[in-house]
Structures are given as C-alpha cells and as structure tokens.
C-alpha cells in the first residue's frame, strides 16, 4: 500500500512536470474547466432569481446536487485519468512495460497520468460544498454527513468500475475508440437533480447507466430523501460492478495479444 502511494506520487510529479512543459495548453484547460464551473453555478443562482423551487428543491439544495456531480466527476478524473489514454497505452505497447514490472498493471493504467489541474478545480468545489452545507443547517448532522461521504465514495467506486471495464475492452479488442468519452458525456446528465427527468429516464439513469446513483444519491441522502433500501442498493450495485469489471479485466489480460513491435 505504501509502495503504491509512493509510485502514485512519482507519477504525479512526473505528470506535473509534463504539464509544466506545455504550460500554455495546461492553463487553457484549467481556465476552461473553471469557466464551466463558474457559468453553471451562475446559471443555477440566476434561475432561482425567478423561481422558488426546482422540483421542490431550494437554491442551496440544487447547488448541492450540482456540486456533488462535480465532486464525483473531478475525483474520478483526477485518479483514473490514465484510462483516457487506454487505447494509446495498448497500441504503443506501454502496457507491455506495465505487465513486466512488479506493480499492478491496472493501477499503472488507471493512474498512468495524474491531472494536477483537477486539484485546482477540486479545491473550489470542496470549499463550495462546505459553504452549501452551512446554508442547509437543518439537514446537517452526523448521519447525513456520514451517508453523503459514503455515497460520494460509492459513486467514485462505480466510476472506477466503469473505467476498468473500458480499459478491459481496450486491452481485449484493441479497437474500442473513445468509449470513455461517451461515459463522460452521459455523466453530464447528472449535473442537475435526477428528479427533473421523466420516470422512464430516471429508471434508465438508476439501473442501466447508474449516473443517478453516482451524482444524485449522495445529495438525496444528505437531504434525507433517500430510503435505506436505495442506499443498500447503491452499495450492492457498486460491489457488483466492481467485481464484474475486475473479472472482465482479468479475462482481457489473459486474452491480451500484445501488439507486434
């Protein structure tokens, strides 16, 4: 465990140095991400100048949903960024090096790069989450906070499962291009509370592509709107998805054919 932390740290430093070497591009990405965060935040605040509630949620509550979406999304980006290069890692043979070195190739692949810029977006998001909590004192207690944190972690775990599955497919077929981007675009459906969608869409987003479980459930649990049954369902779902994706990954490694040099 300690070893993996040290390896992660070296990868992080190397990634940071890489980003420094193309600082102009990095600054552009960072600014873009901050602009997106800022404008959507303004948008939500502006909407509530003209309405009192969104499906029964107040401004602070809606903002909490939005921030939770960002939290799960950014943390997944920060830690599993490497998957975005899965195809390149396989095609250029980097995976071969991962496989012959004594560290988990899955870890090497997922954390192959660390996007430090996401630290800069994560910090304001965390600060805003704290501020939002203070605007919702009637909901704030040990249990609500506990379940919020637990479900955010659970959401990150589901994101991990999806990333692992995508990596496995990349290793296996060597041709699935950009699958992870489709996940990322679908993920934006979780930007607003899941309650806005029609029931059919809600079911799809809960059971088929569990974006609601990742982004909306934590906030719902905090606001006391999620039954214990659904909380247990979330944990069951993430465990099932993780084991499924790990199975897929092991199978993929067995079928791995390496690329000819």
């Amino acid at each position: 465990m300690k070893k993996y932390f040290r390896v992660w740290w070296r990868i992080a430093v190397a990634s940071l140095l890489t980003q420094f070497s193309t600082w102009l591009s990095s600054v552009g990405y960072l600014l873009g991400k901050l602009i997106r965060l800022f404008f959507f935040f303004i948008f939500i605040v502006a909407i509530f100048q003209h309405t009192k509630s969104l499906k029964g949620y107040s401004l602070a509550q809606t903002v909490l949903f939005f921030l939770t979406f960002n939290l799960v999304d950014i943390v997944a980006q920060l830690f599993f960024r490497g998957i975005y290069a899965a195809r390149r890692i396989v095609m250029e043979g980097d995976l071969d090096f991962f496989l012959v070195q004594p560290a988990s190739p899955l870890f090497r692949m997922a954390c192959g790069t660390v996007d430090f810029l996401d630290f800069f977006t994560l910090i304001p998001v965390l600060a805003l989450v704290g501020m939002t909590f203070s605007h919702l004192p009637e909901y704030l207690n040990f249990f609500s906070l506990f379940f919020y944190v637990l479900l955010v972690l659970n959401g990150i775990l589901i994101a991990l499962a999806i990333h692992v599955a995508v990596a496995a497919m990349a290793v296996w077929t060597q041709e699935l291009e950009n699958t992870i981007w489709i996940y990322r675009d679908l993920m934006t459906l979780g930007r607003f509370p899941i309650d806005i969608y029609s029931s059919a869409v809600r079911w799809v987003l809960t059971l088929a592509i569990p974006i609601a479980v990742m982004t909306s459930f934590p906030a719902q649990a905090f606001l006391g709107k999620l039954s214990l049954g659904w909380i247990l369902f979330s944990f069951g779902l993430s465990i099932a998805m993780i084991s499924l994706s790990l199975g897929l990954w092991n199978k993929a490694l067995k079928e791995y054919t390496s690329v000819s040099s």
Partner: peptide, 29 residues
Amino acid sequence: ISLVMGQRSQLWWEIPAQETLKLNKEIFE
C-alpha cells in the same frame, strides 16, 4: 527480470529520464 524492446520506450517523453528512473525505483521498491 527485465524486458527491453528496441524502438519501444518506457521513458516519459516530455521530461528528463531521471523522473522515469525515480518512478522505477518505487515500482521495484
């Protein structure tokens, strides 16, 4: 063991090789 493939690189492209060596130090403990 070690596997070296000519024309394949495990070195990080944009930064000094030093950094890859430090990474390998941790990987191989």
